[in-house]
Design a protein around this nucleic acid. Sequence first.
DNA 1: TGGTTAAATCGGCAAATGACGATTAAAGGA
DNA 2: TCCTTTAATCGTCATTTGCCGATTTAACCA
Lengths: 123, 123
Amino acid sequence: MEEDSRMARSVLDDAGGKCLPAGEILPEVAFEALSDDHERFAGLCKALGHPVRVAIVRLLLSVETCVCGDIVERLPLAQSTVSQHLKVLKDAGLIEGSIDGPRTCYCLNREALSEFKGLSEAL
Amino acid sequence: MEEDSRMARSVLDDAGGKCLPAGEILPEVAFEALSDDHERFAGLCKALGHPVRVAIVRLLLSVETCVCGDIVERLPLAQSTVSQHLKVLKDAGLIEGSIDGPRTCYCLNREALSEFKGLSEAL
DNA sequence: TGGTTAAATCGGCAAATGACGATTAAAGGA
DNA sequence: TCCTTTAATCGTCATTTGCCGATTTAACCA
């Protein structure tokens, strides 16, 4: 289509060095508008995209494992709300819950956490 | 308050080793339910919590700098929608836009990206 | 100055999110 | 077996998000 004009403009755009492209052309091959990887990384980020959920993950990081009730006690939120947040984290694969009698015991999923770190580091 | 009862239960919770806390007590000092740091990290995650925005960040990563129109062309979305996503990323501080004639030139904010990576790595 | 192009903003709409109290389900203990 | 405790789920509501087309704003060019 009109790619040539766009590419030409990108190259020419070097006005004072403040808008300089790295290469000669835009690397089409390195960019896909839609990819599963974007979805996955965005999904993990979205799950962490709420301060309460960050707090929960950091809490689990510091205590290794924790019963749901303990988490609820430490947050200024209703039990049902905390449960929802836990579900979001679990659905994203970031935490795991195991039934322990009448309680549920949550812990981090280290693999998912590593995956997230790896994807972040690649930015 | 009733911390003693809660802490006591946490210690006792070691039923079969599958729900074992890492330390003797839950480390109160290491956890704050509400903190600016949680807000900040969650804010960055939230901004990256959409596949299109991940795609934009990765594109900018690969081309160093890019005019808004180029980004629009590569995404199957209306110009206004892409502009909204760019605004989200800009508000989070992850990208910067500089006016270049009639165009706007976007690039990554490397400092914010480093901040995000650092916070991620700490998980 | 007038016209053209690029990008931000507006208005509207459907869907998702986050919060809550109430209810249900599951498991242990009296 | 019944009762209590724990946590998930349900129903509701207000707010936010994501998308679009239309409009406005801004800057260059003729």
